[in-house]
């Protein structure tokens, strides 16, 4: 692993066991930091609002990002549209700590993702399966997260993606060396990375969960399924008591294997965000199918 890449994954390593929260302005960023978030993610609208309002969802404005950077001492992430490398250049210039090339925003390129090796700032990308994860790592992503189904308040898709990646990882480890090229072909992933993953039995970068986390129990479920941290989008600021819910999710990520603590932190939180039944949603409303 190159020195530059080690610095990128190193920051992801420091964010493990934490909660990263979507925020749209400085006030929300301060609420997240006060609740114990390890990082905040700047975006123009939370996914539930993007879903409701429609239109083109873009990178947050530089003014908002500046305001958020100045409001908190924790690392600040921000989202760019898939393939929009100029939005990424702008965020890097502003000193953002991590860029999320995200399916939650409207894609700018339907064929190509950003060449993330060309940047000093580290990138996180979403995925639904191992092949997608390894393609993003091949492009230079230093952190992988599940896509889940953002803005749905429904954890089912994040669970599906975590299980899918875990299952495909385990299957890769039992293949013989001469079966790996064929596996790489099926995964549509770079052979060298497939070989590394088969040898180590894990991804070469940290693996976080995202998409549909609404309760402390959802966050702990992702952790027990092997996620190393949790992104929370609409789940905080679309609930009735964001401060308490944010704190509870932070604690649930740390104490994810301690049912007594999970009982304690799950009490007195008010109403969670209203969820969507993904099974009955039309295909074109899904965000997770963007970028592949």
């Amino acid at each position: 692993m190159s020195t530059e890449f080690r610095l990128k994954t190193g920051l992801a390593d420091m964010l493990k066991g934490g909660a990263i929260m979507d925020v749209t302005d400085a006030d929300q960023a301060r609420i997240a930091e006060d609740a114990g978030a390890v990082s905040v993610m700047a975006l123009e609208r939370v996914p539930a609002d993007i879903r409701r309002d429609g239109g083109v969802a873009r990178m947050s404005s530089p003014e908002k990002i500046r305001e958020i950077i100045e409001a908190v001492s924790i690392p600040v992430m921000a989202k760019v549209r898939i393939g929009h490398f100029v939005e990424a250049q702008i965020l890097q210039e502003m000193g953002v700590d991590f860029v999320d090339e995200s399916e939650v925003l409207t894609p700018a390129d339907e064929e190509n993702h950003i060449d993330k090796h060309a940047f000093e700032v580290p990138f996180v990308c979403g995925c639904r399966n191992l092949g997608e994860a390894l393609r993003r790592i091949g492009e230079g992503a230093a952190l992988i997260r599940t896509k889940g189904e953002a803005g749905s308040g429904n954890i089912v898709e994040a669970v599906r993606h975590l299980r899918q990646i875990g299952n495909e990882l385990r299957r890769l480890t039992i293949l013989t060396d001469d079966e790996l090229m064929s596996a790489a072909k099926e995964l549509r992933a770079p052979y060298e990375i497939v070989r590394m993953v088969a040898r180590d039995g894990r991804l070469p970068v940290p693996n976080f969960a995202a998409g549909g986390v609404a309760t402390p129990a959802d966050a702990a479920l992702c952790m027990q399924l092997g996620a190393e941290s949790v992104f929370v989008g609409s789940g905080i600021f679309k609930s009735t008591d964001p401060e308490q819910r944010a704190k509870a999710i932070v604690k649930a990520v740390t104490h994810y294997r301690d049912p007594a603590m999970l009982v304690e932190v799950s009490m007195g939180l008010g109403e969670p965000m209203r969820g969507l039944d993904i099974a009955t949603m039309p295909e074109e409303e899904l965000l997770q199918t963007r970028g592949n």
Partner: peptide, 10 residues
């Protein structure tokens, strides 16, 4: 290593 502000809250 990690976020000191997060750990301090705990």
């Amino acid at each position: 290593g990690g976020e000191s502000s997060t750990m301090l809250k705990f």
